[in-house]
């Protein structure tokens, strides 16, 4: 019989995504989720939470409280979520180790038990095509190596099934497309999910080109099948504007902020309300998803807030 002190748990902290229907998930984080899911599937029955089950830090810690020690895994930019979970575990007397998920054996399944999910995506088995910069295929597609295997110059094929894959579990094949003209040609095929790469610096002509491509893709595929793939920042995302998520989308840069609004306004207007709302969060320096993870919703804290006067 394994006693509590010997039971080691695993927790991957959640990622706070404000524009899941518009932005392609962070692929580096997706790799982390996949490797955690594989490790979990390999080890079988042990205390585990892979950050996709919609629990708060306290609820997660409660589920893991049977472990003597929990390995807490977080991606770059997830430091606040990690700190919240670590504090919640320590309040319950659970020892915490920080680090990467243990390596899984090659080919181990990323089990359905993970409950992790990569955000809103079409439900049918989909193909994804990523649009790289002109003539280059070194953009977001290059980061998919851990999830997908390159079968030819232009194609990445999924390696294993599972809900932990960051590009949505239904996506089986990714076509890498060089340039928007090629993307438009490919978009005639049904069942595709398109991710347009948005560089950190957008010239006027490039913005117009992206708007035209996004509009055309939305008209052909349906707007819910078009995503933006934001060019990763160099180095670690910081807490500019109060949140790492804002830095990931480039919202700390006034020009890219304006470009994003214009792109969405002109090509994907159904997202405009949510983009405005996210800009507002950034502007006033709040991170509501982080607050919810911390258990700070107004009704949940109400009694505490009134303690001195009621």
């Amino acid at each position: 019989m394994v006693n509590k002190a010997e039971r080691r748990g695993l927790a991957l902290v959640p990622r706070f995504e404000y524009l899941p229907g518009l932005a392609l998930p962070d692929l580096a984080r997706a790799r982390l989720a996949l490797s955690a899911a594989r490790a979990a599937a390999e080890r079988g029955d042990f205390p585990c939470d892979l950050g996709g089950a919609g629990r708060t830090a306290d609820e997660t810690a409660e589920r893991l409280s049977s472990a003597g020690e929990v390995l807490v895994v977080a991606g770059a930019g997830d430091e606040v979520a990690r700190a919240l979970l670590v504090a919640a575990l320590e309040r319950r007397g659970v020892a915490v180790a920080l680090g990467a998920p243990p390596a899984a054996a090659p080919g181990a399944p990323a089990g359905a038990a993970t409950g992790a999910s990569a955000g809103a995506a079409p439900s049918a088995r989909e193909e994804l095509f990523l649009v790289a910069e002109r003539g280059e295929l070194s953009g977001p597609g290059a980061q998919l190596g851990a999830l997908f295997e390159r079968t030819d110059e232009r194609t990445l094929q999924r390696r294993g099934a599972g809900r932990a894959a960051g590009v949505a579990p239904e996506i089986e094949r990714i076509a890498l497309v060089s340039g928007l003209a090629e993307a438009r040609a490919l978009a005639g095929e049904a069942g595709l999910l398109a991710a347009l790469r948005v560089p950190r610096r957008l010239e006027r002509a490039r913005l117009d080109e992206l708007v035209a491509a996004a509009s055309e893709l939305a008209a052909r595929l349906g707007a819910e099948r078009v995503r933006l793939a934001f060019e990763p920042r160099a180095g670690e995302p910081g807490r500019l504007g109060g949140a790492a998520w804002a830095a990931r989308y480039g919202l700390e840069d006034a020009r890219l902020r304006a470009d994003l609004v214009e792109l969405v306004d002109r090509a994907l207007p159904q997202h405009l309300g949510l983009v405005h709302t996210a800009l507002g969060y950034w502007e006033i320096g709040v991170d509501p998803l982080e607050e919810m993870y911390a258990g700070n919703a107004l009704p949940d804290r109400n009694a505490e807030l009134l303690a001195n006067i009621v």
Partner: peptide
């Protein structure tokens, strides 16, 4: 949470 776990925190934020 049971039906759309990835939307749970957003739903709580909206509710808040």
């Amino acid at each position: 949470r049971l039906l759309h776990p990835e939307r749970t925190l957003a739903q709580r934020a909206h509710e808040n």
